[in-house]
């Protein structure tokens, strides 16, 4: 129940990459064909996608923690039910994404173990704390909003299982984004304390959200090949700019101030933002964000505390199989 029997990388012949197959593969990508699990693919394509899809899956699962932290304190029953359903959706996204990654030949268990060992990355944003109820609004509005900007192009990604997973994920994410924005609208129409809470959440989440799009184009390691393989269709900076341009009017609508006094609109209508503190981003990626240790500790605890449950389920399944065999033999 915890894994699918796909963790066999020995059987594939991806190491015999002759020029003809590579050329044929690239021709299929150029013709906008979808690559499916049983198709031949270059080892580097498989590796890149396994890394990207599993990081995405880890982000969904770790991302349950900052919001999960508010389920028991949600301020109304309607908000409580909506938040629980939202965090449950994130778990569902994690499940389909691990399943999509497994089609490339690495099991969910192996991928999860890498994350728990601190050897796989997840989105840097989840290493920031959700301090107040307004953070739940800001996460939905900004973090899910940024995720959608990144993920909509992935619905056309060349790898079929990932593209199909993204179509479903994006539908749910856009619902979450509207839900988050609606929380912000309610706060911005509320008491002075609520307005201040909303502003403080925007102040704390703005810059980390801009960092979610990844390093600036001039410093990004993976973009060139990912673009050639149609895994990535827009650069980090392009997506970041689209996000900023979409979000500034929303902040204005809310009567909130984006914490970037130098921001200005240029002649093309784009909002130019000030320099991002990439040192902070690098520190968070290196494990030094405010919550990296807490997040990993929470995931490890759930995994360790649940080990006896998973063992029991396997032991029971095995016993049942043996009993069925014994019955059949009688």
């Amino acid at each position: 129940m915890y894994t699918q029997a796909l963790n066999t990388s020995d059987g594939d012949n991806s190491h015999i990459e002759d020029a003809a197959r590579s050329a044929n593969f690239q021709a299929r990508i150029d013709a906008d064909e979808r690559i499916e699990p049983n198709d031949w693919m270059p080892a580097a394509y498989r590796k890149t996608l396994t890394r990207q899809i599993s990081q995405h899956a880890h982000s969904e699962i770790v991302g349950m923690l900052p919001e999960g932290n508010w389920i028991t304190r949600a301020p109304s029953l309607r908000r409580k039910a909506a938040l629980l359903a939202k965090v449950q959706d994130e778990c569902g996204h994690g499940l389909y994404l691990y399943a999509a990654a497994e089609t490339l030949g690495t099991s969910r268990e192996e991928l999860v173990d890498l994350m728990l060992a601190g050897k796989a990355k997840y989105s840097s944003i989840f290493n920031y704390p959700a301090l107040t109820w307004a953070d739940i609004g800001a996460i939905g509005w900004l973090v899910d909003g940024a995720a959608i900007m990144n993920q909509i192009p992935l619905c056309r990604c060349s790898y079929g299982p990932y593209a199909r997973a993204m179509i479903r994920v994006c539908k749910e994410e856009s619902f979450h984004q509207r839900q988050g924005f609606e929380i912000m609208v309610t706060l911005s129409k509320g008491t002075e304390e609520q307005k201040a809470m909303a502003q403080s959440a925007l102040d704390r989440w703005w810059w980390p959200v801009l960092m979610m799009f990844g390093p600036p184009d001039k410093a990004s390691q993976h973009s060139d090949t990912s673009t050639k393989w149609k895994i990535k269709r827009f650069s980090n900076d392009e997506l970041r700019q689209k996000f900023v341009d979409a979000t500034v009017p929303q902040a204005q609508f809310l009567g909130l101030t984006i914490p970037d006094p130098g921001m200005k609109q240029n002649a093309n209508g784009n909002w130019e933002y000030s320099a991002i503190d990439w040192e902070e981003f690098n520190q968070v990626l290196a494990g030094n964000g405010p919550c990296n240790r807490d997040r990993l500790a929470a995931r490890r605890k759930a995994h360790d505390d649940g080990a006896w449950v998973r063992e029991a389920a396997l032991a029971y399944a095995e016993k049942r199989k043996q009993r069925q065999h014994a019955q059949a033999a009688e």
Partner: peptide
Amino acid sequence: LSEWCGHAPMMEEDMALAN
């Protein structure tokens, strides 16, 4: 049951407890 969210022994059970 909602206290379990994000902390269940396996993802399938995280889904079921939330449900």
